[in-house]
Structures are given as structure tokens and as C-alpha cells.
Amino acid sequence: MADDGKLHRREFLTVSGRIAAACALGGLATRVLMKGGDNSDFDKPGTRYAWRINPDNCVFCGQCATACVRRPSAVKCVNDQKKCSLCVVCYGHVKDQYVDSKKINTAPKVCPNNAVLRKDLTGGIDGPHTYTIDQSRCVGCAECASRCSEHGSQSMFLIIRPDLCLNCNECEIAKNCPAEAVERVPIAPEDDFLGEYGMNHGPTQNGM
């Protein structure tokens, strides 16, 4: 307390530092949050975002099942019913596509967890069958989607379930994905997220 001048100087420096810090934070906030530019709602800052798999890039490597921080993975396979050809023998369902129609239900399955469910639609063993994927059993290993995509009608594909995804800042799957198929996309507030996941990729059925 002996020299008042020094104390005052330090105090002045502290106050100016405080004001500068407050200005810096305020400036950062306006810069980051108020950035306008595009008219499209999609790019507007302040929207929520989610990780998703771009089905056009996906190579079905199986990393999704193991890389995710969640056990089981937040990645699940889905079968797009609008694209599925309702085949009697499904590549994503049974391993041997030459299997007898009567023995399909007991034949070895592609899915290690038997998550691909086959249901007879008409009652005839050679009629159309629907295929759905039991989300509680699916671990996202992409075995079925890989075969469906390679040989079948490309109706099965992987999604990151937004309701299961922890939305990590650094997605472990994105880090391990060999095809850069996992990306973070903004979702606009009005987007209900239904049908967001590239349902329109691959061949489309006539009239559907």
C-alpha cells in the first residue's frame, strides 16, 4: 500500500483487461452466431446437427458395428420397403441363394444375430415376402446390406439412428470410416428427420 500509484496502475490494467475480454467474447458471439449469408435454412447457424452415413459412399466395411462408442452400435441397418423387391430368396437374408424355397426359414442366415425377419405376404411359398430388420438385434455389421447392395435391389442400407447416437463431437465411426461416408449434417428446426437418410439413393422402382 506504500505506493498508491502502482496499485492504481495494476487496477487500471485489470479493469481494461476485463473490458477487453468481455468485448472479445461479445465479438466472438456476434461473429459466430450472427453469421448470415445464405438464405437457405439448411445452412443457417443455430440449427441442430446429427451424424449420418451417406449411403452413396458406404462400402459396408463393418466398422460401424465396432467403432461406435456405444455397445451395441448406434448404427442400424434398415430395409427400405419402397425399394425392396420382396424376393422369395433374399441375398441379405440367407447365405445360399440356391436354397430350396421350403427350407429358407431354416437355412443358415447372413445376419449373425438373425435380425433380418422374413414374412410371407400372400401365403404361397414362392410368393412375395417382406423383409424387415429387427432393430433390437441389429448391431450394424452391414453383412445384409453389403449382399443386398451387391446382388440385390439395394434396398438395405445403414443409418446412424439419431435417437441412439450420442452426437459426439468427434464421431469414432467417422474417424474409422475408410470411405468418408460419415458426415455431420445440420438439421433445420422444422425438419422432422424422417426420410432424411438418402432414401432416394440407388435404383428406383418403376411406378413406386
Binding site: 441442430r48 446429427a50 434398415v78 430395409n79 427400405d80 420397403q81 419402397k82 425392396c84 423387391s85 420382396l86 424376393c87 405376404l121 412375395p128 446382388h151 440385390g152 435391389s153 439395394q154 443409418i159 439412428r161 439419431p162 435417437d163 447416437c165 452426437n167 438439421i187 422432422d192 428427420f193 424422417l194 426420410g195 432424411e196 437418410y197 432414401m199 440407388g202 435404383p203 428406383t204 422402382q205 418403376n206 413406386m208
Partner: peptide
């Protein structure tokens, strides 16, 4: 890209309603 679908899906005359696949909304 497969230009035409490998297995054309059956045509339904009975008016079978094909369910649509949806993705659950994020929290």
C-alpha cells in the same frame, strides 16, 4: 449404379399398402 433394378418388384392388384421406412427423430 444399377441402371435398372435387378429384380422387378411384384405388382400388387389387391391394393397392398407398402409401408414406408422412416428414421426415428433425434432428441
Amino acid at each position: 449404379p444399377a441402371v435398372v433394378s435387378r429384380f422387378p418388384r411384384p405388382e400388387f392388384e389387391s391394393g397392398h399398402n407398402i409401408p414406408s421406412t422412416s428414421v426415428p427423430a433425434p432428441p
